[in-house]
Amino acid sequence: MQTVYGVPALNLAERIVTFESDGVRLPGIVTSPTATGPDKLGLLLLSPGLKHRVGPHRLHLKLARFAATRGLHVFRFDFHGTGDAEGELPGREVPDLHERIQNGFFKGDAVNALRAFKEETGVERVIACGLCGGAITALYLADADSMVDGIIGFQLPVKVLDQESDFADQISEEYSDFILMLYLKKLFNPDAWRNFFTGKSEYGLIRKTITRRLGRLFGAGGREGGERSIPEGINRIFLQAYDNVAGRVKMLWIYSEQERARYDFESEFEKCCLAGSERPYTKRIIEGSNHEMAPDDAQEHLFALIDDWLEHEYGTRPGGAE
């Protein structure tokens, strides 16, 4: 039988756990450790956006079975109104629901899941982990409950896009340059020119990325200064939660190289919001990856980064602690 990333897949000690959250029943899966590890340490996986507890390409299942081999208890569950859970969401417009999630919509479910996790397994310290919406919910959970000792977040969004405004006006200078570079790569691509002349290109985005670049070439320099500033669009609820947990909670932030959220994090959060401050977290970038970390190399890199961080912060080892 083959394995991927050393994650055994057969007959693991997994059991179904359901719990109540504000009057609705949420289902989840507890994975028990398959090796010795840090005492009473758990990994709580928070679903991305509106997706269920298994995640895109079973990412959460792979993470759960991987963490179990490092000696951790793991719990992953469905937020209300998603997956197999009871409950309904307040609308169906995905951008609106994403915005709600970025502002803490699922925090209550996460708090209740943490309690259920503790009751079911006896964990006393938890690492909250998630992709995108799951990452920001992990931060809100850490702010709400001191049981959260660490956060592993992938593609953490720090800005909330205004759906009524032009996308090109809301992206960072660096991400604007990245998009421009992608267009320049297509200069000798006949298909791209065909799209351009048949009305299929995003002319507004092309024009704005060019004018922003030219503006900086002939105008003002970078924005990094010695004092904190808060750029327009930065999620202030996120910022408050970050300020509350920074220094208390161990944090690992992982981004795909081309991810827009990465540019927001580096260009606006780190350069402006954290100007003159310490950066008490680990940040890693994965090359050649998409939002969901789908390519083989990206998945392999992701698991290696998590493994290193867990070993450094918690002393875990492949196959269990010595």
Partner: peptide
């Protein structure tokens, strides 16, 4: 190989 069932997907 899917969802919460046993096996890795490639199996």
């Amino acid at each position: 190989g899917y969802g919460d069932s046993d096996r890795a997907h490639h199996d």
